[in-house]
């Protein structure tokens, strides 16, 4: 056994060797850790975003509602100032705000589209199919049947094609 404590005083980098299989696992780990530590170039990005917002605000102020335009310009100026002081905080806050807004809008939109689709399409056509005894789910038992095994013919006619997704 070789005690190697003395070698530990000068840590080396844990470098994956490109082209080696295990490199994939290591590279993944390094990438995620490295990504998290990467310094943010927040100021430039937020400056660009607020410039666009200011331009939109100015256009609204000139061609549309003056009050709305000024409000938008003020928000852009506020965000710009805050970003110059602490770009990471502003960037995280903005990112979070956009993500939550997106999530809420997405959920709302999903329900808005899916509920009518379900009740206007699936409900009536489902009822029709069930009336026509074309319910694929076979939610009944048959005490007299000797077996419930079915012949395997492929899930649908023509589905045997190996290169088709159906």
């Amino acid at each position: 056994m070789t005690v190697s404590e003395e070698q530990n005083t000068a840590p080396r980098s844990f470098v994956a060797v490109p082209g080696r299989p295990e490199a994939a696992a290591v590279a993944w780990r390094s990438a995620s850790v490295g990504g998290a530590r990467e310094p943010l170039d927040g100021r430039g990005r937020i400056a660009a975003q607020t410039a666009v917002a200011a331009l939109v605000g100015a256009s609204i102020a000139v061609f549309g509602s003056r009050a709305l335009g000024i409000a938008l310009l003020s928000i852009a100026a506020l965000v710009f100032t805050a970003a110059m002081i602490s770009p990471r905080t502003v960037s995280n806050a903005l990112g979070g705000l956009f993500a939550s807004t997106g999530r809420i809008a997405g959920t709302g939109l999903t329900w808005l589209l899916m509920v009518p689709l379900f009740y206007l399409f699936f409900l009536p056509f489902g009822a029709l199919l069930r009336r026509g005894r074309r319910d694929r789910l076979q939610r009944f038992t048959d005490a007299g049947a000797p077996t419930y095994w079915e012949a395997h013919e492929g899930p649908r006619a023509g589905s045997q094609h190996p290169d088709r997704q159906y």
């Binding site: 379900f118 009740y119 699936f122 489902g126 009822a127 069930r130 319910d135 694929r136 789910l137």
Partner: peptide, 9 residues
Amino acid sequence: LETYFSVAP
């Protein structure tokens, strides 16, 4: 989809 046809509403 067949499942939803079957169980709707």
